[in-house]
C-alpha cells in the first residue's frame, strides 16, 4: 500500500492532492486568475503560489484524513513548466519531505496527466492526446516509454485559445477556454481559417496571427465573436482529431484518451468520439477535476514510480523547465 502526496504548480494552477493506492483522498486547488485581456506571467504566478501553498497543503492533509506519518512518498512536479512557479512549490515539497523524513520524487508533469487519465477512466493502452495551455502532444506507449507521435511545432492549442480569448477580452474566470466553449455554442457562421497539420505535427501560431490581424474586418463582415469562437474551435480540434486518428490507425489501437486542461472541452470530446465510433475505438476522457492540472495526478504518477522501485537522489530534486514525456522510463508498466 502506498500513500502519496503530490505538489503541482507548473502553471497558473496550484494543486495538492493525496492518493492511497489509486484512491483519491483529497484534491485541493487554487487558480491564479488574471483580468480579461491579460495572461499569467511567471513572477506573479509564483507569488500567487507562495501565498496559497501552505493553506492548500493544510486543506489537502485535513480533507484526506491521513496522518502525515502514514505518507510514504512526497511527490512534486519537476517539469516541464514555468521556472519560478515550479521552484516555489518544490521548495515546500523539499522542506516537508525533510520535516516528515519521507522520500522525495520529482514527477514529469505530462506523465502525471497520462497516469491520472488511465487511473480515472480505466483505459489500458490508449493513444493519448495531451492538450493544455503549455503542451500539445499525440502519445503512444511502446517499450517502457510514452512516445511522442506528433506535437505542436510552435504554441500549444490551449495557448492559442487563451490568447484568442484575450483578443476578444473574454473573462479568464474560471478559464478562458471554458468561456470560449460556452460562447462557441452560440456560433453559427463558420469563418474559414488556416488549417495547419504538418504530417503528424500541428501548428497554431499562424491561426492566432490570422485571427489577430483580421479580427476587426471579420467582425465588420458580419461574423460575431461567437462565430469566431466556434470557427476557431472547429478548426483546431479538427487538426487534433486528424493527427490522433492517424496515430490510432498506425498503432492499431482501440482506445483514445484525452488529458490536459483543454481535454475537458466537450466539443473536442464530441468530435473525438465521432472519430472513435467510425473506427470502432473507445474514447476515454475526464472532467475538470482531473483534466485540469492538479496535485493528485502528481501523487498518483509518483506512487506508481515509487511502487516500481524508482528512487531519486537528493541532488536530482531540482526543477527543470524542459522535460520531455519520452525522457521518463515507465518502470511501472509491464506491457
Amino acid at each position: 500500500m502506498v500513500i502519496a502526496i503530490g505538489f503541482e504548480g507548473s502553471a497558473n494552477k496550484l494543486g495538492i492532492g493525496i492518493v492511497k493506492d489509486g484512491e483519491v483522498l483529497s484534491n485541493c486547488r487554487r487558480t491564479y486568475i488574471t483580468p480579461p485581456g491579460e495572461g499569467f506571467l511567471p513572477k506573479e504566478t509564483a507569488i500567487h503560489h507562495r501565498q496559497n501553498v501552505l493553506q492548500v497543503l493544510r486543506e489537502a492533509i485535513d480533507k484526506s484524513g491521513v496522518k502525515v506519518s502514514d505518507i510514504d512518498v512526497v511527490c512534486y512536479t519537476k517539469g516541464p513548466g514555468m521556472g519560478a512557479p515550479l521552484a516555489t512549490v518544490a521548495i515546500v515539497a523539499r522542506t516537508v519531505a525533510q520535516i516528515w523524513n519521507k522520500p522525495l520524487l520529482g514527477v514529469n508533469h505530462c506523465i502525471g496527466h497520462i497516469e491520472m487519465g488511465r487511473l480515472i477512466t480505466g483505459a489500458k493502452n490508449p493513444i493519448v492526446l495531451y492538450v493544455s495551455g503549455g503542451n500539445t502532444q499525440v502519445i503512444a506507449y511502446s517499450k517502457k516509454r510514452y512516445r511522442i507521435f506528433g506535437e505542436t511545432i510552435d504554441i500549444a492549442v490551449g495557448n492559442c485559445l487563451d490568447r484568442f480569448a484575450r483578443i476578444i477580452k473574454l473573462s479568464n474566470d474560471p478559464s478562458p477556454g471554458y468561456n470560449i466553449e460556452q460562447l462557441a455554442k452560440k456560433g453559427e457562421k463558420y469563418a474559414l481559417l488556416p488549417y495547419c497539420v504538418k504530417g503528424m505535427d500541428v501548428s497554431f501560431s499562424g491561426i492566432l496571427t490570422y485571427m489577430e490581424e483580421r479580427i476587426e474586418s471579420l467582425l465588420k463582415d458580419g461574423y460575431t465573436e461567437a462565430d469566431l469562437c466556434y470557427s476557431l474551435q472547429e478548426t483546431v480540434f479538427a487538426m487534433l482529431v486528424e493527427t490522433t486518428e492517424r496515430a490510432l490507425a498506425h498503432c492499431e489501437a482501440t482506445e483514445v484518451l484525452i488529458v490536459g486542461g483543454v481535454g475537458c472541452n466537450e466539443r473536442l470530446q464530441a468530435m473525438m468520439h465521432q472519430m472513435c465510433v467510425e473506427r470502432d475505438a473507445k474514447l476515454f476522457a475526464t472532467d475538470e477535476r482531473f483534466c485540469i492540472d492538479n496535485g493528485v495526478m502528481i501523487a498518483h504518477a509518483g506512487a506508481e514510480m515509487f511502487n516500481s522501485g524508482t528512487r531519486m537522489k537528493w541532488e536530482d530534486c531540482f526543477i527543470t523547465q524542459r522535460y520531455r514525456t519520452d525522457e521518463v522510463e515507465t518502470t511501472w508498466r509491464e506491457d
Partner: peptide, 22 residues
C-alpha cells in the same frame, strides 16, 4: 522566508535526521 513559513506551519515535530538522501 517560504522555508521558515513552512517550518512554522508544519514543523511541530521535525525529524532529527533525513534518511532518504540515497
Amino acid at each position: 522566508i517560504l522555508i521558515n513559513e513552512t517550518l512554522d506551519a508544519f514543523g511541530d515535530s521535525i525529524s532529527e535526521t533525513y534518511t532518504h538522501f540515497t
